[in-house]
Design a protein around this nucleic acid. Structure first.
Lengths: 225, 225
DNA sequence: TGAATTCACGCCAATTTCACTTTATTTCTG
DNA sequence: CAGAAATAAAGTGAAATTGGCGTGAATTCA
């Protein structure tokens, strides 16, 4: 899971980052609202932790801007010392998905992060069916028309991501992050993987399912289009 | 919104039901875990409020059973007096989407209900509708009269901007800036893109939607004008 | 040794440019 | 104050250009 933490207090920020990284999550850290917005819009995160009390910008504005401009529907968990009803109301109206008041138990933060991300990726251990394509996550296996696809590891990851986002297209950057995490390959390896994925997913069949959206990314489509 | 409340204490239950119904939500009420499970499985709710302290069954079990057997992936908000971390952890591991400890402000319950249902709704795509034109940002797709428009990347950007500003006209300079940023094309490329945008958006249809405002820019219009 | 990655080449669609036509707006003149 | 002429703005469509992406072989990695 890839998380963005927006928090001006570096001591608290570091503490949270350390704790979350202990859970095998990759955490980016922004100490100003402006930086937070930039990162949120240009990268793809699974979750954003937002402290409302920022020096340069109002946290509520930051939340609204991100919700409006981010490419994906990323959940936002607000962290703040303010615990009056009006503050919470303002936060939720601005689009927050959860609201935690300081001081809090770091372990509870983790629980709520998990709950939010779980909701995002609902169908993780079930069987996914997209048209004539069936993906079994647990079995690490995919079939099209009952014929098993001979996928490589990366190929499977890409296909799974595309299937989970179906019918929405997945931006290139999102695929890169999901497959390679923070350490992106130097050159464009994704292209080659898409190519070989097409060889097993599309080549042997009538109609292609993997569609390119120029300048954006890729998308799974079913025959009726 | 259709909500199921599972709560054994009838006084508290009635209080919550009344308050939620005041928000124009329809609330079903179950005072035992068994009844709650039955209702949750056979009806479709947008949200389930579950008190953990039930007489006949453990609330955690109820939560797990519902998550497992319900047809839809309905969000569950747990309500309980238990405030310890272990309790919360148990609740979240059982699949809870949010966790509220008694006593709580009923208005906060409403906020959290809204946040949960909103997140659920977001999975359905947000669409912009202007007259007979429908734009789906996530799908990167636009339809007029149910007919998909074959837009280029730039064409889509322009149309989206026009739609977002509807019914106001958008000045040329704004379009240029949105599509090309700071590095504007040397000659007047926008003219050509408007031309080709008209070819797909207006040509195949009865009435044009893309109107020129001389010396200013362009504007989307609906037929009744 | 098979999978992952890099690289170079080439195609093609999207974009840009340009020359020309049409339409709108202003200015000029009887 | 017409109505014509001049000027500016926008539309049209084809040709030129670019950049993104597909392709498959070569290379590295694990």
């Amino acid at each position: 899971m890839k998380i963005l933490l927006i928090e001006d207090n570096r001591t608290i920020g570091q503490q949270i980052v350390t704790f979350l990284e202990g859970h095998q999550w990759s955490v980016d850290y922004a100490d100003t609202g402006e930086l937070g917005i930039q990162l949120a819009i240009h990268d793809c995160y699974d979750l954003i932790l937002l402290d409302l009390n920022l020096p340069d910008k109002d946290g509520i504005d930051v939340c609204q801007t991100i919700k409006k401009q981010a490419q994906t529907n990323v959940p936002i968990l607000m962290i703040t010392a303010r615990d009056h009803f009006d503050d919470k109301a303002q936060g939720f109206y601005a689009g927050a998905d959860d609201y935690l008041t300081k001081p809090f138990d770091l372990r509870e933060l983790v629980l709520r992060c998990q709950a939010l991300s779980r909701r995002q990726q609902l169908h993780l251990d079930k069987q996914l069916t997209i048209g004539e394509l069936v993906i079994d996550v647990a079995m690490h296996q995919a079939c099209r028309n009952q014929i098993e696809l001979q996928l490589t590891n990366v190929g499977f990851k890409i296909l799974l991501l595309l299937a989970q986002s179906f019918p929405k297209p997945v931006p290139r950057s999102k695929i890169l992050h999901t497959v390679w995490g923070d350490e992106l390959p130097d050159s464009d390896a994704l292209k080659s993987h898409i190519y070989s994925l097409r060889n097993v997913l599309d080549k042997p069949f009538e109609k292609p399912m993997l569609k390119t959206i120029t300048n954006v990314g890729y998308q799974l489509v079913t025959s009726n289009e």
